[in-house]
Computed example of a mutant assay.
Amino acid sequence: MKNISFRQLKALLAIEASGKVVEAAKVLGLTAPAVTLQLKQAEAEAGVQLFERSAHGMRPTEAGRAVLAAARDIGERLRLLDIEIDAFKGLRRGRIAIGAVSTVRYFAEPMLAAFAEAFPDVDCDFIIDRYAETIDRLKNRTIDIALVGRPPRSLSVRATTFGEHFLVAVAAPTHPLSRRRGIAKADIAGEHFILRGAGSGIRLFFDRFIGDAAVRAGATTTEMESVEDIKRAVMADFGLAFLAAHSVAGEVQDGRLVILDVAGLPIRRQWFAISRADRVLTPVMRAFQDFLTKQGASFLPDAPLH
């Protein structure tokens, strides 16, 4: 594969993305025969078939997927090189893609606004999703940095802490437990809980905290993906919830929710900014991590704990 060209690799990536030579040619600004020639030359260099035609278009073979993975790695390295060269020129510009778990939305706006003010020539893509999907994006290199409540075990990452958050149980003010103090875990184990889905980091900590007590008590749960939907259900006294304290700060202050005084709660956690350990930190990534280390905690809302 020593003689394969970057132009051929770009053609392969375009074919994969579109599934058709004709569509790939449009993206590349070439003719379809020219793209077909690039494919044939790449296959001749590899000595194996890289794509096969199917009813659904061009599909990469197993060998083709290996070549495409290498093509993406080469493209990513060249992108980083371009950023590094700009840094040597003294340019403070670039692009960064940041992924975050859903509870980051409660402090993301002022944090990103402050970063944009400090680095006005940096374009920032910001994606909020569940924990599992955010980690998948980091694995697939579609984001540069992830803001999460715990580093993953399935991926080698470098992690920087930038603040604390607390996990609490909440109820409607009319719920009988809202007026009790020193509630035992067993006393809430049989309550109906409205929870995030299994892919949520908060759900993982709830399952660890409640453990077998919920099974013994025959507890029931309802799953909702939106924190806002969960809060509305709890305010309607549909059940209890387990959430980040900063995500319910407004409702607690207004008297629409109550943080329960449960033994073992709140659970104290750290916020982490993580990136792949096998990636070279670009100047923009380094600038964002430094920004979080120095200023990140100042954007975290005060979390009510009782």
Rank of each mutant, 00 (worst) to 15 (best):
V101A: 09
P176Q: 12
V258Q: 01
G163L: 06
R232F: 04
R150A: 14
S247C: 05
R208G: 03
G264T: 03
L155K: 06
A108Y: 08
L12R: 12
S298Y: 01
A44D: 09
M58D: 07
S298D: 09
A63V: 14
F205N: 04
A71K: 08
R208I: 04
R268P: 01
A97N: 02
I127R: 01
V101Y: 07
I194T: 02
L300M: 06
L257A: 06
T61G: 10
A217F: 07
G190H: 06
E164G: 10
Q41F: 08
L28V: 12
K2N: 15
L30P: 08
L204N: 02
F51W: 06
P266Q: 07
V148W: 02
G264Q: 06
D278R: 00
D86K: 13
G47M: 07
R196M: 01
S247I: 04
T222F: 08
D136K: 13
G201F: 05
A241S: 15
A169Y: 09
I135M: 12
P283V: 03
V67W: 14
F88R: 14
A171W: 10
I135Q: 11
A233C: 13
I145N: 03
F119L: 11
Q8Y: 13
E62T: 15
K2Y: 13
S54F: 11
P110A: 15
E191N: 02
G90C: 13
G47T: 08
A44G: 13
V248G: 05
R181Y: 04
V67T: 13
V22E: 15
L112F: 11
I127S: 02
D290F: 01
D144N: 07
F291M: 03
I145H: 08
F299D: 03
D290N: 09
H175R: 10
I4C: 14
G296R: 00
R7G: 10
I74C: 12
G239F: 07
A171I: 11
A198I: 00
A233G: 04
F272T: 01
G201Y: 05
F272R: 00
Q49G: 06
L281R: 02
G99S: 11
L195F: 00
Q38D: 08
